[in-house]
């Protein structure tokens, strides 16, 4: 009866994670609508989840192998499969019991190419799940992000402030202009629609809000509001609580890259004092990246 005897070979991946909530947080941050298809790519370095929308917005969640307490990879090449993001997150969420560390094992593929999850921290209570996977769709366009020039055009802003700014821009809506200028060093978000709203982050005035700033030439691009909003709409509360920053970079052609850091560290509930040395190991961070294409009608003068 033992199923391992029949199994022809080892699965592509068996890994264990001791902070399910961290993974739920990381994946939720790219969940901007109810039904989203995601592509998951496995490699020896970790798991990458990719979602995109109408060739204008792409998001990636990088779960590096260091996040896992066990990571056994035995595939050739990089297996990819499609899942429903919402279902995957809702399902993972049932494994997370608040106030308790939850260890789960993730395996791919199961006998019928499913993604298999099971809790492994208790012998007498077990949660398990099988999620049906799909053959992934082609990634519709190439999001090769290239720097705009010799120096990167980028700034780092407190995630909470970024979210607040983008939320505020909902009122003018439609299309949002992002302007970076070297003198005075500042970032401006401007919305024109039902009204005008401009939000300025001045580098030297608000060093606690705008943490870093690199810009040697003025650039300005417009982005659809709904895509900008998707980049911050589901930032997990842990990011705000940890007071983290988000990095925004404008690349060639105005492609906007937004990066967040989400902690997948094991919550140190038991000994907050003793544990302070191991507090937030840098390797226990999931990286979230969004790529937003600018609106077409932008003057491309900046790039020439």
């Amino acid at each position: 009866m033992s199923s391992s005897a029949i199994e022809p070979e080892a699965p592509d991946l068996v890994c264990q994670l001791d902070n399910v909530q961290g993974m739920v947080d990381a994946l939720s941050s790219v969940r901007w609508k109810r039904h989203q298809d995601a592509v998951i790519e496995l490699s020896e370095h970790g798991i990458v989840l990719i979602v995109e929308e109408t060739s204008c917005l792409q998001a990636k969640v990088y779960l590096q192998r260091e996040l896992f307490i066990r990571y056994e990879y035995s595939a050739q090449g990089r297996p990819r499969f499609g899942v429903s993001l919402g279902l995957f997150v809702d399902c993972l969420n049932t494994f997370s019991v608040p106030g308790r560390s939850n260890t789960i094992e993730i395996q791919y593929p199961g006998p019928d190419m499913q993604l298999l999850l099971k809790s492994v921290d208790s012998l007498d209570a077990c949660i398990y799940s099988e999620i049906r996977t799909r053959i992934p769709d082609m990634i519709s366009w190439d999001y090769n992000f290239e720097p705009a020039g010799s120096t990167p055009l980028s700034f780092t802003v407190k995630s909470a402030a970024l979210k607040e700014a983008i939320d505020d821009l909902e009122w003018p809506g439609s299309s949002i202009q992002i302007i970076l200028q070297p003198v005075p060093p500042s970032v401006t978000f401007r919305g024109e629609g039902h009204g005008d709203l401009q939000i300025d982050f001045m580098y030297y005035v608000n060093t606690d809000l705008l943490i870093a700033f690199h810009c040697d030439q003025e650039v300005s691009y417009r982005y659809k509001y709904k895509f900008l909003r998707a980049t911050t709409s589901n930032i997990p509360s842990s990011v705000i609580k940890d007071n983290r920053g988000s990095k925004l970079t404008i690349g060639r052609g105005g492609m906007l890259k937004v990066q967040h850091l989400v902690s997948v560290a094991r919550p140190s509930v038991s000994h907050p004092h003793i544990d302070s040395a191991g507090y937030q190991q840098p390797s226990r961070i999931a990286y979230i990246e969004f790529f937003v294409k600018p609106e077409e009608d932008v003057d491309t003068v900046n790039d020439s």
Partner: peptide, 27 residues
């Protein structure tokens, strides 16, 4: 059709008819 999600709680206190788990079924 897309997902199976379950939870099993074992070795609970039984009142009424009970039986031993067959040895082969434990794992």
């Amino acid at each position: 059709t897309l997902i199976t999600l379950g939870a099993e709680f074992r070795k609970l206190l039984v009142i009424g008819e009970q039986a031993e788990v067959p040895v082969g079924d434990r794992d």
